[in-house]
Amino acid sequence: MSNVLVWIIWFLAAGGCLATGVAVVSVTNPFYSALALIGNLASLAVLYLLLAAEFLAAAQVLVYAGAVMVMFLFVVAYLGGRADAPWAGGPPLLRAAAVVAAAALLVEVVVVVGLAWGDNLQEPAEVSDSFGSPAEIGELFVTSHLLAFEITSIVLLVAAIGGVVLGTTPEKEEAE
């Protein structure tokens, strides 16, 4: 793949990723917000591909765009997708504090990246073709990261229980 082509793809993916990100947090209707997140996840998957993480890109599309987002859309549909005030009410001081906090976080991170650029971000390691392939990841998951694998499954099980417990909440009777 030529260098220019990679840059173009990168620009499209990164731009799409940021634009959809902004859309997620700024649109009023949760339905569009969820749709924007799908776009966000998809562009992230492209970035993963560029970073030689094929398996993760696939997982991203399957797990997120496939499963999680469907769940989201179901819930949004169930709730009726009501519009929502775009930005929080609450005391102005609190709002200002939130913006300042988020901005500080951003500035910090960007500055950090900028500072580190010159030192050690120039030369990524050489990787073989099988880097990020399902086989390698699978092997790591059952050897050195066995525990992580097990815990992940426990966490998913817990979530399933939670879904059942919370999902079976009885409707509030109108009389109450």
């Binding site: 992580a148 817990v158 229980i161 939670g162 417990v165 919370l166």
Partner: peptide
């Protein structure tokens, strides 16, 4: 991180 999420998710419920 995983341990943290493990007990946190239980606590959320």
């Amino acid at each position: 991180f995983l341990g943290l999420e493990w007990f946190s998710l239980c606590l959320y419920i």
